Amino acid sequence: MILVFGQSGQVARELARRVPDARFIGRTEADLSRPQELKAIIDLAEPSAVINAAAYTAVDRAEEERDLAMTVNGEAPSEMAAACAAQGIPFVHMSTDYVFPGKGDAPMAPDAPTGPINAYGQSKLAGELGIRAVGGPHAILRTSWVVSAHGANFVKSMLRLSETRDKLTIVADQIGGPTPAGPLAAACLAAVEALKNDASVSGTYHFAGAPDVSWADFAREIFRQAGRDVVVEDIPTTAFPTPARRPHNSRLDCSTLDRLGISRPDWKAELTEILKELETA
């Protein structure tokens, strides 16, 4: 039985579709702001593997709630990893491109120097460091721009805005790979199986949709596929200030994914499926 921390998030909901017999732990059962309680939950469940699909994801609010973000994203995954290592079972954790400073225009490899520019990224990096320090069988999947038919995400925001707007200004100087939650969930499961077969594949991987694109061009493709007549005007990041700084370069080098037997998903094809699901919802 796979134990999944997370229940209502985008990836957790996609995991539930693929492994309905997994056990999903929500906030009422596991409060990640109390990491010291997590070992007992894992020990009692006696799972074959653990996937952490829960996190503090409020990027801007993290600037004011640094301690909470650090606890949930830094200390909690470290405690999960330690419990899994003690049992000798795989631990799969999702991280983010925000652990990088986001400079230049080259895709960042898993071993590229980190240097987060906001509190959220710092908290996620702390989680990575804690997991690696434990040394058990693990896979850290860094991802970016997660979207699906569930929860709050860029696709749903664009569709909502298009109901009342025929022109939108969208940031065009941040480039990354939109990542559909379905393939990301499948990647987590593939990582579990790979670790069960060979613990030496433990490490950090990048998993993001292809091709890389700006937020503005991503929005254009959403409107094109959805048949929405909306004009997108490119703007720089400086024209849309936020409490937390965003990296300009979120391109991820995903070339090592073959070690897990997976590859980058085509986000345009997956977007088509997301829109179909939203139409029938």
Rank of each mutant, 00 (worst) to 15 (best):
I41S: 14
D266H: 12
Q174G: 15
S162D: 08
N118W: 01
R132V: 06
L38M: 14
A62L: 09
L252F: 05
P243R: 08
H93Q: 13
T242K: 15
A109R: 15
H93R: 09
D234H: 15
I170P: 08
G151F: 02
S250G: 03
V171L: 03
E273Q: 14
R259Y: 00
E46L: 09
F5W: 06
I51F: 02
V99F: 09
G130H: 03
T114D: 07
P265R: 05
L161C: 12
I41K: 15
G6N: 07
L257I: 05
G9D: 00
S157L: 12
A106L: 14
P211H: 09
D111A: 12
T114C: 14
K156P: 11
L195P: 15
T179N: 04
A133E: 11
V59K: 02
D31G: 03
D253E: 10
A69K: 01
G88P: 13
S78M: 00
V134A: 08
F5V: 10
T256G: 10
N153V: 00
V99Y: 07
A119E: 10
S162W: 00
P180D: 06
E233F: 00
A109C: 12
G9F: 03
N249K: 07
P20M: 11
L252M: 11
A22C: 08
E193L: 11
V213W: 00
L252Q: 09
T71Y: 02
G151H: 01
S123D: 01
A226H: 08
L260N: 08
Y120G: 13
A226V: 04
W145I: 01
D234A: 14
A186I: 07
A119V: 11
M158Y: 00
K39E: 12
D97E: 15
F223W: 08
S95R: 03
M94S: 10
A22N: 05
R245K: 15
S33V: 04
A181T: 05
A45T: 13
P180Q: 02
S250C: 14
V50F: 01
L68G: 08
R17A: 01
R165N: 11
T71K: 08
F207K: 10
T204Q: 07
K196W: 02
Q87I: 04
V155I: 07
T280Q: 09
G261E: 08
N118D: 08
Q36V: 11
L129Q: 12
R245D: 04
R17C: 00
D21E: 13
P107S: 07
G209H: 03
V92R: 10
A152P: 12
T164P: 06
N118A: 07
Q36F: 08
M1T: 13
R224A: 14
T204E: 05
A226I: 02
E270V: 06
I170A: 13
R160T: 11
I25S: 01
Q36I: 10
F24M: 01
L32W: 02
S157D: 05
V11H: 00
V92T: 14
R246E: 02
A58K: 14
A85H: 13
R13K: 06
D234I: 07
P90Q: 06
E279N: 03
G74W: 00
Q174Y: 09
E163C: 06
R264Q: 15
S33K: 11
E277K: 09
T57G: 05
R251M: 09
A106N: 08
V11I: 08
G151C: 04
